[in-house]
Design a binder for these strands. Sequence first.
RNA 1: GGCCCGUUCGUCUAGUGGUUAGGACCUCAGGUUUUCAUCCUGGUAACAGGAGUUCGAUUCUCCUACGGGCUACCA
Length: 507
Amino acid sequence: MTDAKVRVRFAPSPTGPLHIGGVRTALYNYLFAKKHGGDFLLRIEDTDQTRFVPGAEEYVIEALKWCGITPDEGPGFGGEYGPYRQSDRKGSYREYAEQLIKDGKAYYAFDTSEELTEMRDRLKLAKVASPQYNTITRETMRNSLTMSSDDVENQIAEGMPYVIRFKMPRKEEVRVHDIIRGWVLVNTDTLDDKVLFKSDGMPTYHLANIVDDHKMKITHVIRGEEWLPSAPLHVLLYEAFGWEAPKFAHLPLLLKPDGNGKLSKRDGDKLGFPVFPLEWKDPSSGEISSGYREQGYFKGAFINMLAFLGWNPGTTQELFSMDELIQAFTLERVGKAGAKFDPDKTKWFNQQYLRSKTDAELAEAIKPISEEMGYQKSDEFLAGVCTLMKERASFIPEIVTGGIYLFEKPETYDEKTVSKKWKEDTPDRMRSLMGDFEKIENFDSSEIEVVFKAFLERESLGMGAVLPNLRLLVTGEGMGPSLFEIMALLGKEESLDRMKTGIDKLS
RNA sequence: GGCCCGUUCGUCUAGUGGUUAGGACCUCAGGUUUUCAUCCUGGUAACAGGAGUUCGAUUCUCCUACGGGCUACCA
């Protein structure tokens, strides 16, 4: 298998929207696969029927597509190892579980959930360190190890519900090699007899992932650190089946920006940044969680930021396209420690991407936003807006909101500037300046500037005495981009009109 | 509680048995700019603690502390 084509999988369960930690796991899988010319597959792990959330699978697929993490195989993507939804493979798991029973490596268990809690309570009372269904306690429970084979057959024939449990061996050292962490040693005495096959006829994650990874010829399992504790079980399962295990890499977790703990759904809206790639509306509560796409993030910036949360190229380069990430990515350079999500850095990445776009590209991006706000402007005008605003925006919508005065006349005038700069004689000066502007035939920024400077010269005035007031009249603001360029963009008629209106309002 | 994983500036991180411990974000100070933003220059800021190995440990080992994960017929 070491020489086989690299095949990795991203295996989410459709229990809700994919959050950015999941996206990062998918991304690392994808980068690794592409780096080695391999396949990236999407497999839906929906063996828990009770946790199914409508729309979640569609969400995952749409999110991956938006990110540019396109599966080579998966539901809706084709592939020779399908189906790629575990519920559609339901029929294929039982035989494997029974094979294990035949080999003496698993057994039937008939205990009810009440009996299980009773057992755990009893052990807890007896101060057992870790109450679990294991090599000791299974002797006292109702299973095919303690019952006669006739009893077992009768129970099954009568339709008594049962599960199939893995018969954890006693006192064995299990060695799991992890590409990121090295060797992890665990004694089987600390492990329990995990359920492999549930009474509802579905396998648990543990069985399903081993069987499917084997059948789908997965070579590397790259998943979150939360799976590390069950990795020894998985290694044991591969041994029990006599299959070669894939290589493992357990990724560090994404942590909350403040305080501690795993990043969760709640953190995002609380701290004002999305935790999801796409907006998600909870089908039962109707609650909406914001998404990076809807917030105006560039997918490239989003991916770039995510890639750097737990990985780095070892150089000082920080801006990477997807292709560059593929080239540079190695699992060995993935860190061991969890990374706190940093909204500020995310913003910085987005700003870098925004500034690398052409005005025409940005114009296209702000068009729907401005139209939604009720402005119908030409592409040329929008590109002009972008020229002026891109240096002071981190996000696409800010180009419009930050330069709203480019779209409509000012309603109010910045009070601070008014009280500081607007004097008794200002209206007359502004009227005089208007007169000069009226004479300009070619109303472009350099011409406006020439006329403006000539005006200052003639009136013996400084920039500071006149320009802020002019800006106030034209934009209503005390600060902003080059005023001459703003006026040129607005045009002569509009600029003069704003001056006139403003003078009247402020006088 | 038990098992497992982890710990370098506030954050993301680089790094080596001997370095002025480097970069980026944030922040602060200056410069540029009519203003704001951008941009430029500079500054503050870290090896969790304790033992041990060693001529010498941030780096290797152990212990402690702290953080995290897992501990379901969930994934």
